[in-house]
């Protein structure tokens, strides 16, 4: 078993508004190990950012204790803490005339006095960090002129250059397109394989599933911890979407929007894929396509292929209307 790096005992995360506690998340225990990549998952407003900011000392611990490598975080000096934990907030770095290289260089400040200049070893580390996220060609580009994906990679380079055993990032995959989401997760995975403990908050379960070791599922009543697969098999993932029209389909591994079906439809013919996507379109229109008793069907769609062209036929008769695309079929049904 890997070494424990972060040890959380009875932690109450939250914040005060004046003297009153305006928000508190119930006390919980958790442990993060060396080289573990953890995704903090939860609904909007459940307290993910608050928890991350408590772990990074940006918000005070209301109760309980957090220890890093055995030391209580409140006992660690600001500078030592900056060498233990790098935190990348969800708001992107912004500065009009700072290029990627200068930006990543700032991550080395905790290692030097206010007047010591950066050493050769620092610039090597910075160059390596920039290289590892694939931004070497853009290192002279101002960070304000980067695309969202490039900026996120620059921020990861910042965390890498800070050279800390722990990296904590708030929503690193927000605003990114799918390939960039996977790229960011891959880069973080790479860092975790080198022994870094990484905690990120995310809403991208699909991306996280394949690449994180552990999910900390933040539910309003408490935190559930497990491998993504543990949470699927135990059915706990559905707790995330309690009281919403969304449910988790353990078979497909996807969250599905639960349509209220008013009518029924039968789809026949076609390849399994054609069948699946035709049914998908009909479900969107409020037709239930997956049912066992076939007595009261209102709609009958037949998928057939003529002269290499797929066609959708509505109704059982010979003179039933046929359509060359699902879009036209749907337009007809909607009237």
């Amino acid at each position: 078993m890997a070494r424990t790096v972060i040890d959380i005992k009875g932690l109450v995360a939250g914040y005060r508004n004046g003297q009153e506690i305006a928000f508190r998340y119930p006390a919980f225990d958790a442990v993060a190990h060396c080289g573990e990549l953890i995704a903090l998952v939860g609904r909007n407003g459940v307290g993910k950012s608050t928890l991350l900011r408590t772990l990074t000392r940006l918000k005070p611990v209301l109760d309980g204790a957090v220890r890093i490598n055995g030391r209580y975080i409140d006992d660690i000096s600001g500078n030592d803490f900056a060498r233990l934990v790098s935190f990348i907030p969800s708001e992107p770095a912004h500065a009009s005339h700072t290029n990627v290289y200068e930006f990543v260089c700032m991550a080395r400040y905790p290692y030097h006095g206010w007047f010591e200049s950066l050493q050769m070893s620092d610039s090597l580390l910075v160059e390596r960090a920039i290289d590892s996220v694939g931004l070497t060609n853009l290192k002279k580009r101002y960070i304000d002129n980067l695309s969202d994906g490039e900026r996120q990679r620059a921020m990861i380079a910042f965390a890498i250059a800070q050279d800390t055993p722990i990296i904590i990032m708030d929503e690193p995959t927000a605003f990114l397109d799918l390939p960039n989401k996977f790229e960011v997760m891959r880069l973080l995975r790479e860092q975790s394989l080198q022994g870094k403990t990484i905690i990120i908050s995310t809403h991208d379960l699909q991306t996280a599933f394949g690449l994180v070791d552990t999910i900390w599922l933040m539910l309003p009543k408490g935190i559930k911890i497990g491998a993504p697969e543990d949470l699927v098999l135990s059915g706990i993932l559905n707790k995330l979407v309690d009281n919403t029209p969304v449910y988790f389909d353990a078979k497909s591994g996807q969250f599905v929007y639960n349509q209220p079906f008013k009518k029924k439809a039968i789809v026949v013919g076609g390849t399994p894929t054609q069948h699946r996507w035709t049914a998908n379109a009909l479900q969107r229109l409020g037709f239930e396509t997956d049912f066992t008793d076939s007595s009261a069907d209102e709609l009958f769609v037949q998928i057939c292929e003529e002269e290499g062209k797929v066609q959708w036929k509505l109704g059982r008769g010979d003179r039933s209307p046929t359509f060359d695309s699902i879009r036209n079929l749907c337009l007809y049904i909607k009237g």
């Binding site: 940006l58 935190f87 500065a95 700072t98 905790p110 007047f115």
Partner: peptide
Amino acid sequence: WFFARPLNVLGIGELYARSLGYN
């Protein structure tokens, strides 16, 4: 002149400054 570095980080964002250990 003494504050050159902290000013650089403050310009990027307050949270960055705090997470680099500045008060």
